[in-house]
Nucleic acid binder design. Structure first.
Lengths: 337, 337
DNA sequence: ATGAAAGCGCTAACAT
DNA sequence: ATGTTAGCGCTTTCAT
């Protein structure tokens, strides 16, 4: 940085007062005379003065900034959760600093490290995949709330999630209600959310007396993963697919149509998340919808609470999802029964 | 923040050395004895020491952090551009701090203000909608590069964009090549990108001798906007629609299908951007694809260059888009000619 | 190889 | 109402 920005000192000199008075005036203190205040404000404007947050935070030990880690910006789910977070924190005078995860988990940790060095006051982790040990350390240092995961019980760390086991059950119930039995599950890979959804699938299948039809195909949470996993799934001649998330479900549908089968006539498909794009008629995806913005809003509330009371006991909020029936699921027909 | 984090001083005391030596050791200086280094590293680890970036930046006047403003996290375009930015800046030892725009432009400015107070070294604006005066001020203070806009000529501010006029022309050329004449354009609202695309449409239509068929329907850049604008567009009985962007194009298709017409048999639709989801078979959208990640990468490169040479002349990079023909456009048939 | 001291820009007693 | 001063945590000469 070649040009050095004007400082409080410069403003003070120009206005012909002391640094402290400038500080006071700019903070809106009532004990500054109108004359001085006017002069100071004018001087600041003239110089294009902008307070140095680093210096300020060094002194007051607050930044009014919370960090947000989003696993994958490509998945619209996270943008929708973030909406909720932002509206809520802004109302309370906080800003957010986002970082996005990358394919490399080590980078993710490094990014969090950066955030912490900037003295953020809290951290919201959206669908992270940090190891528990790291999480413990982080949560001990800074108020932390995790969104979309509830499998961890770490002191001083709150979580807000939806009940994935129950949501998965709703998906299976819906399909069974349509007469399906050979329901294959494309799972979302090795992460807690996907595990929970798989677990819900297994339990629901079992409860419906369909244990013998349980079939879990390894997949992932991206459209590419959904596409790729589908060829294996088709080998089991399913009449319906329950896919780990909406994005992967869209990939699965593409693969099904690529195989010259149609949805839902030959195979019904249900996703999970309730991303907006799934509601577009072109896509028209039946899904288990999470209250995404609400998830974000609650996460922010927990965060704010924890910032003012660091040591309050860990809270784990669980919101329920809802079944949204659209066009990719239908009754079993003679074509696929 | 109740608990105060350990400082260099604490580490020094524990290791039994001076603050300066700790600083040196942690910076990897070779003039620290192995013994001291080991002790210092151990002490730092034991205390969970994390350098305070605010203090550091105050001293060294560098943050190695660049700020990125993304207009709308919901539009997948921006995530893809960001990918390019991130890979590039990381390779050069920089981190990014993201902020996302909101419906309220004033908030957007406030967010940038926050970023600047944190002493970011550069600012990348992706599809912002800041007024030119603000932009000038910002660009004068911090290296700035704008992505997806090229209409501004501001000193010390670079831009990276695609040639929207030319891209729009390609879209029209494609449709005309398929025999379409009644090509209606759903524009993207009052912003420079949309203006350029509309302009390209008009020029291309004129060049093809189709000036009498020019019809621009006001719309927006979201799926809802595309959906809404389509009913007016249908009033002109088009055989093809050129929509301002992919997301809106998906909305338009939904509206067309809602009206019991089919794509492309009754109406062809072409979008703009080349978002990944458009490539899914379910969507299968013909589009003008921008080199999104490349846009981001180049933006980052300009940024980095400008950080090391503040006063280099403004550069305006323009990358070209490519026509991607998929399933939503087809030849004019007896049904719609 | 190590330490002492100064100072980055700011705020907050405290003094006047 | 305004100024003086100390110090937040760090890096960086400059001594030793």
């Amino acid at each position: 940085m070649a040009h050095s920005r004007p400082t409080l000192h410069d403003v003070a000199t120009l206005a012909g007062v002391s640094k402290s008075l400038v500080s006071l005036a700019l903070a809106g203190s009532p004990k500054v005379s109108d004359l001085s205040r006017t002069r100071i404000v004018a001087a600041a404007a003239e110089l294009g003065y902008r307070p140095n947050a680093a210096a300020r935070s060094l002194k007051v030990r607050r930044t009014h900034t919370i960090g947000v880690l989003i696993l994958d910006l490509h998945n619209p789910v996270f943008a929708e959760i973030l909406d909720g977070v932002q509206t809520e924190v802004r109302q309370h005078g906080f800003s957010t600093m986002l970082i996005s995860g990358s394919s490399d988990p080590a980078l993710e940790q490094a990014e969090i490290e950066t955030l912490l060095r900037f003295q953020i006051e809290g951290l919201i982790l959206i669908a992270h995949r940090l190891p528990e040990t790291i999480l413990r350390t982080v949560a001990a240092e800074v108020p932390t709330v995790v969104v979309t995961r509830d499998d961890l019980d770490i002191p001083q760390m709150d979580s807000v999630s939806n009940d994935d086991v129950d949501g998965a059950r709703m998906a299976v119930d819906h399909l069974v209600g349509l007469g399906h039995r050979r329901i294959v599950h494309l799972n979302g890979g090795d992460n807690p959310v996907s595990h929970a959804r798989s677990e819900g699938y297994r339990r629901a299948m079992t409860d419906h007396g369909l244990a013998e039809f349980i079939q879990v195909v390894p997949g992932g949470l991206t459209d590419a993963a959904g596409f790729a996993a589908t060829s294996e799934a088709l080998g089991y001649h399913p009449t319906a697919l329950f896919v780990a998330n909406d994005v992967a479900a869209m990939g699965a549908i593409a693969a099904i149509e690529n195989a010259n089968l149609s949805v839902p006539e030959d195979i019904s498909v249900i996703g999970y998340d309730g991303i907006r794009i799934g509601g577009m008629r072109r896509v028209n995806l039946t899904t288990i919808a999470q209250p995404l913005a609400e998830l974000g809003r609650q996460a922010a509330q927990h965060m704010l609470r924890r910032i003012s009371d660091r040591d309050s006991p860990a809270q784990h909020e669980q919101l329920s999802a809802t079944l949204v029936i659209r066009g990719t699921t239908g009754p079993v027909t003679s074509r696929n029964s």
